[in-house]
Design a protein around this nucleic acid. Structure first.
Lengths: 158, 158
DNA sequence: GACCATTGGTTCATCTTTCAACTTTCTTAG
DNA sequence: CTAAGAAAGTTGAAAGATGAACCAATGGTC
């Protein structure tokens, strides 16, 4: 116990690591968002496109997509509606489960992806990856992977 | 060049470090938000409270607060309005610059802070800090500090 | 094979964020 | 001194996010 009420406050080392993580994650998201802006995409849009691009037949069930992108069903539904009107994606019925829907990449969506991906990767490199040494990368992954794992399982309640 | 069009795609090592960072930052924010919810605060609220608590006289100029919390003036203005109606904060005029305003912590705001902070720290420990070894912490900071620095200066255009 | 809890998705109301327009005060150059 | 421009904040409308309520379709189970 560090203080009279038993709270274990953060040490300086802990504090600065924590604040660095916080600051980087926010600034980085903003920067990536800015770099996507010229292409008329948001980070959310892009993430959906990535998921669909990497999937069998360029399609995913709504629920799976929601899980993969860590969004609520509701939010994803709105998001897909927007992307649908933008022509990047379309909804398609599911034969085997008639409640279900697929989100499917359109040709235009795929074309957009092919055009934008290189710029996005460049942006990730410029603002993050290329600023880290190979050791940094290893250390980062080693440190964060367990955190991610725990958060993933904790999710929904702890 | 890795491919015909000259894009330097991410290696597996790079990819997984990048995705780990991404995943942690999102899950973590959600978790912290959930843990603040019982106290009726959002992450944004809490961050404002922290900034004001740590400031001289528990007050900050709106612009400085906006900069410190990486928010737009507009967003901060709305945010403070909400916190003002919640009784956590009040606006006060600035003598020396009559365009300016201070956001000032109310007694209730300070009391809230004293009550909530221990829980928040516990949450940060449980979901992040305590999952990292001292070496992890050092490595994390060493890796991220330069990234943060660059993003901070890059901000607004690159 | 009828019932009921689950699952998959959408919708509506509400709250938050964003963006551009606007007011007031300050600063500075001439 | 004064006019032009910058800086500090606010405001309002439009877009996005959240959460609860809702409607089907499914999958047991008795």
């Amino acid at each position: 116990m560090d203080t009279e009420n038993g709270t274990r406050w953060l040490s300086d080392e802990e504090q600065r690591a924590w604040r660095a993580h916080l600051e980087v994650s926010r600034l980085l998201m903003h920067q990536l968002e800015r770099d996507l802006q010229p292409f008329g995409l948001t980070n959310n849009d892009y993430e959906i496109l990535v998921n669909l691009s990497e999937s069998e037949d360029h399609r995913m069930r709504m629920s799976d997509l929601a899980t993969a992108t860590l969004q609520s069903k509701s939010r994803l539904s709105h998001q897909i509606t927007r992307m649908e009107t933008a022509g990047l994606v379309r909804r398609e019925n599911c034969e085997s489960d008639r409640r279900g829907l697929f989100a499917v990449l359109t040709d235009q969506g795929w074309e957009t992806m092919r055009e934008v991906a290189p710029h996005h990767v460049a942006s990730v490199r410029e603002h993050f990856i290329d600023l880290l040494s190979p050791e940094d990368l290893k250390a980062l992954y080693a440190a964060l992977a367990p955190v991610a794992k725990r958060l993933r399982t904790t999710r929904g309640r702890a």
